[in-house]
Design a protein around this nucleic acid. Structure first.
Lengths: 199, 199, 199, 199
DNA sequence: AATGAATGAGCCTTCATTCAT
DNA sequence: AATGAATGAAGGCTCATTCAT
């Protein structure tokens, strides 16, 4: 008899569930998934150990929820930018804007991003969510392009690729590991390449 | 009185150490670091649990060795390509070559690559090795450029960035997750961008 | 993030903690500290292995608690005797009384006494407790003397020495190993010597 | 088929056996019996792990030998003193001499003494050796008394008791734990008591 | 709905002892 | 006689999950 997980409807319950997610978010960020134990999550959430299993199937289930929250929180700014796009798209303005947003998102979510990504490899559901996110972004922009009458050959590939580059660069930029790199120069490089892609 | 780890000199011992590394390699690939236990490693290596600790300080130490072996094995083809470069560099040929190599490397090391990367976030030593590898590659190519009289502005940034792009693309290509993407087109895009970078 | 040890307040919890201590007491007595394993302690206490670590930091922590209980239990009769002392102290009565108590204490705590003492040499905290106990006894009696107006030169040294002798003798008496010794005679010897000490 | 332990006859073998005993002696002194492992003993003795089991049945067997050596080494000075006793016994001189010897023996063998004693409780053979030693000493002195025509009532008890006191005192004196005790005073006390015993 | 005590399988590691050479 | 690699049982401890209240 599989334990069914409570679907909290009352406000207080939802609040409690969110507290657990928040605690999970913090701890996964701080010490990773395997460095976190449920007792600690409960403690930080200010709830009992037992009740955690009232709201979540198991520890991994918390992770999945954290991931969802994280994705919403982290990628909302991008969707906001996309939504505001109007014809004609001013690539000179919007590309740096996106890159800057990507950098600050990376900065703000540095640890949790790593923790989640590190699980993507071993956990199908986690990686699926990341993939779905990429799909979402790519297709949303492509749609926008169509809608705004922007006509680019191989639009989907270009959009997706641009996204990859930005991600890759932001990651580097934030973790800033290589001292022999001038990241200002690199950033300009990224901007130029993406602009060229859409002209 | 820290237990010293045997430094195997005799062939049979080295062989046994390699067997353990190989077993670790396989298991880490299959079920990840945290999904693997030492008893299983020993079993698959065909040795006793105890002797594992004769060759390695602890479980993590096995990981570090697996990582080293992996890096050598996986990146050797690239260094071979770089070594063979002669003046004048024929970018039209060499870039596709490198990309193809990157793709096949990703294919061959798919699982372990992910397992190791997933630890990079939580383990300083692991991430340090990856960083060192990137440094190594970037600087080796930069050197080569100087040596061959190739004169590119911001060479280091470009090389590093090219590497990032290739990595990012190969990852996508192999995991091949997005059905709406035409990866042939995308590949040509990558090639073109990198070529433009160095002209 | 050190695991905190539960501070049991509820009766049932305290009972359980005591059961573990009792089990530890028994096992340490029977097979010594190193001959005892935590699983066995749990089993004898009728609890799970895990919960032992809910009440105690580690195996050694159980020992420390056992020691404390033991000390209280074993030495309480002596403190009772000291408390009842009134002026003028009737050494003829009280000294045999103390010696008899020492003998019966040794008898009752024979094995655990040895087990604990055997750890005193390797464990600072254990030996510290024994030392503190001796201090406590010596000083308490000295105080009593002052309070009762007993005037003895070098009181502290004499008290302490008397304690040593009694301990030494009781140990012998109980373990009763030497057949060529007439312990009745020896006991009278001890009594006489101590009496002489305080006259 | 019980492994028979080699009875080394050749000098080199005896030497090697002694080296192992010496190494055991040192390590048991430093970190106790349970803190010592056979590999370390072998290493410090400069021999292989395996050969230890050529000379000794098991780890405990090493302990027994160490104990024997220790006893011989530590108690020889006392036997020398006893042997030199001539009629009439000058108690005023010999008692302080013995006490001083006891103190210095305690000082020199401090750690190993504790390590060995700590095992006496859990190991029959070890405790038997200590008992035998006490028997030996007591009876030897008693014999000497008879031989020298010293006539003391309850000689055996007195001798044994004197030995106990001296042991107890020396132990205290060396470990010197209680700051409120004047050990010079205490020492004189011990001397006086023992002298009185034999007059 | 909530608590937190309790469970017990499982993990990493050690080490006395054996064995192939 | 000697080596030291190898064995594998056993131990201390953790932690996801369950359960009595």
């Amino acid at each position: 008899m599989k334990n069914e997980v409570r679907q909290p409807r009352q406000e207080r319950s939802i609040e409690k569930k969110n507290k657990i997610i928040e605690a999970g978010y913090q701890l996964f960020s701080e010490v990773g998934y395997y460095g976190t134990n449920t007792k600690e999550i409960a403690k930080r959430a200010g709830v009992s150990t037992g009740i955690v299993y009232g709201y979540f199937q198991d520890k991994r289930d918390i992770l999945i929820c954290v991931l969802e929250i994280y994705i919403n929180k982290a990628f909302d700014p991008f969707f906001k930018i996309f939504d505001k796009l109007t014809e004609p798209i001013d690539f000179d303005t919007v590309i740096p804007k996106i890159i800057n947003q990507a950098i600050s998102t990376h900065k703000n979510n540095r640890k949790i991003h790593e923790a989640l990504h590190s699980l993507a490899s071993s956990d199908e559901a986690v990686s699926a969510q990341f993939i779905a996110l990429e799909d979402d972004i790519t297709l949303k922009i492509a749609e926008k392009f169509t809608h705004l009458g922007v006509n680019v050959e191989n639009a989907v590939e270009k959009i997706h690729f641009a996204m990859d580059i930005i991600q890759s660069f932001s990651h580097e930029y934030v973790f800033d590991k290589h001292e022999y790199i001038d990241y200002i120069v690199m950033k300009d490089m990224v901007i130029k390449i993406i602009k060229d892609l859409f002209n």
